[in-house]
Design a protein around this nucleic acid. Structure first.
Lengths: 361, 361
DNA sequence: CTGAAAGCGCTTACAG
DNA sequence: CTGAAAGCGCTTACAG
């Protein structure tokens, strides 16, 4: 087996380059990192040796020495299998979109600064989750945690290892948070449904109870409904879980129990709305004719749904890019911890609220 | 500024643990890595100190010492902005799905082995791409390269740094490749369109010319069309680019030039089919009544399209998981290089080919 | 401008 | 079973 191992040429080290160039490893390092302008001749010899040998510095050695890995970790919550195998919603269908678009935003911003993304997912009842996140923390210069990837009680412990930015969470003394403006977004949507369309009854199909986004959206809707003197429905019967299957189940149970449906249903997010749309269509209920349905997020698929989904657009990529920028500013000095960064949302009127393709209504 | 820096408690090191436990750093390491069964008492003292201090080993130091990073790099191609800003196809809409589902598969498989994913994207005319990929290579134990992330001529150079597995590429002496069975998949789809539906004319709306997947799919379709004595259309007018905008543009130009449309259009992938569906619908052409349209991949959104898209399902997550497994087996000993792993595909009949919801046709 | 040397924080033969 | 020491491959004061 020794022979086999020997067949793997291990890449050249800085010592190989130094030898080939006839200089010290310090000079090689300086040329490569552009420090303390080496002499022209030194530079050329080093560069030639680097090219000849195909030298690229080892990341681990650089990281250890420079105390900077140029890696940020991103942790998100994997979709529990049982949620997705029920109904017609395939596993990949779920949650993919919002998370992945955010990650794309993080990656683009990171790339610009020479950072790479280390991604890891955790399951819901993942005994090992905390340990794995700690390991990721020590493979990175900082961590970005998606909604509910980590229980708030664990945050302080993680933040002791590296700077932490949460997404759609709540800022803490040791972590910063980035989120969309749920209050303004839902208020605008609610007024459109209640005032522009004049719907007399409205329900909030909730997301996870422990999600700050969910709470804020519910509160804004409830407030606006009260102000418009509309009937507001929520509570256990309206409890979803941010997934399509959850939205579909709520509708199915309501109909099975012969409960009357409100004139409008504001879903906690777009995924939930997808499930609601499917369940309603399966029962032959017309959207928006009989029931208006709206989402939140404006994930890419929203415009492809039938009817096309009215929703509140979050600047998803920017959410990710901002999270990276904030984290970056915390690396080395954590003076941004505790901050709450709120990005603006936009009401996107399509068809599912009762508007027509052309304009309102 | 020194004060500010001091306010960042840097995490405890193995020396801190050793001191607290009253043992050597070697013993701490042994307890943590489960080697050479330390004595019960030693173990307990170390474990207590680890817990008290909240010690987690630094990844870079571990990697340097153990010569293993437990990180695999994944490189994919970013969508060029100009392709997406034309037409109604938003940036996030594109290419996201296939790539992200594969990455999910890689991540899940990696997680099981204690590995994390380091992701990086490259633009099309990204001058810096090669350097960035080399940097990623040296931050990982191996690299998985998505379709066209890297020009084949660069492969050998990268493979000298770390093991490399390509996705939807071609195996080389120094790299392994994982792909779906394009030939079998497209053959089955072609026969369904040509024989079951009996369409007399059919076109192939191509993907990137330099993509092996594209070539194999085209070839299978051309062969089956010839065997069925159907008219086969392809060539420059039918050149797409794997994106929705590309498919839409082909249709728009064809119609602008008053060219007759074939009875069936087999698209290189699902994204292309999305664009074709939109363009056709915009011109009031009925699918599948006037023109049948099919995709390839079965990305999650395919079932949400109208009409629901008939396509060839690739086991997308498995493609990713397999790529990881192969790469893993190459780390330490590259004896799997040169292998070509082909995963089976499945024909998924929905509506866009002319079948009805219930069964065929 | 350049080199010798220390040090980053671990793992792992090597002795005992 | 345990510890002292070497070494992983870099960067960066420190001298010269």
């Amino acid at each position: 087996m020794a022979e086999q191992d020997r067949s793997i040429q291990s890449p050249p080290t800085i010592y190989d380059v130094a030898r080939a160039a006839g200089v010290s490893i310090a000079s090689v390092s300086r040329v490569l990192n552009g420090n303390r302008n080496p002499r022209q001749e030194t530079r050329e010899r080093v560069l030639r040796a680097v090219a000849d040998l195909g030298f690229v510095p080892d990341g681990a050695a650089r990281a250890l020495s420079a105390r900077l890995k140029e890696v940020v970790g991103v942790v998100f919550r994997r979709v529990p299998w049982q949620l997705t195998s029920e109904g017609s919603f395939a596993e990949e269908d779920e949650s993919l979109q919002f998370t992945d678009v955010i990650n794309r935003g993080i990656e683009v911003a990171a790339q610009r600064q020479g950072y790479n993304l280390l991604v890891g997912s955790v399951g819901v009842d993942d005994q090992d989750a905390h340990r794995r996140i700690m390991t990721m923390a020590r493979k990175s210069d900082g961590l970005i945690l998606h909604d509910r990837a980590v229980h708030p009680s664990r945050l302080a412990q993680i933040a002791r290892q590296v700077p932490v930015v949460t997404l759609a969470g709540i800022a803490s003394p040791v972590t910063a948070n980035v989120r969309g403006d749920n209050g303004a977004g839902m208020t605008e949507l609610a007024r459109h449904l209640l005032l522009d369309h004049g719907y007399p009854t409205i329900a909030y199909l909730a997301g996870h109870a422990d999600s700050p986004d969910n709470l804020a959206r519910r509160e804004a809707l409830a407030r606006e409904a009260a102000r418009a003197r509309a009937l507001f429905a929520d509570g256990p019967r309206w409890q979803g879980n941010y997934y399509a299957a959850g939205g579909a189940r709520v509708i199915a149970l309501l109909l099975a129990d012969k409960m009357p449906l409100p004139r409008a249903i504001a879903c906690a997010n777009d995924q939930t709305a997808i499930g609601v749309l499917h369940a309603l269509s399966r029962h032959g209920i017309d959207v928006p004719g009989e029931v208006a349905v709206t989402g939140f997020d404006d994930i890419p698929v929203a415009r492809h749904l039938h009817p096309r989904l009215t929703t509140v657009r979050q600047p998803i990529q920017e959410l990710g890019a901002t999270a990276f920028d904030v984290l970056r500013s915390m690396i080395g000095s954590r003076d941004r911890a505790g901050r709450e960064i709120v990005l603006p949302t936009t009401l996107v009127l399509r068809e599912s609220c009762g508007c027509t393709a052309g304009g309102r209504q």
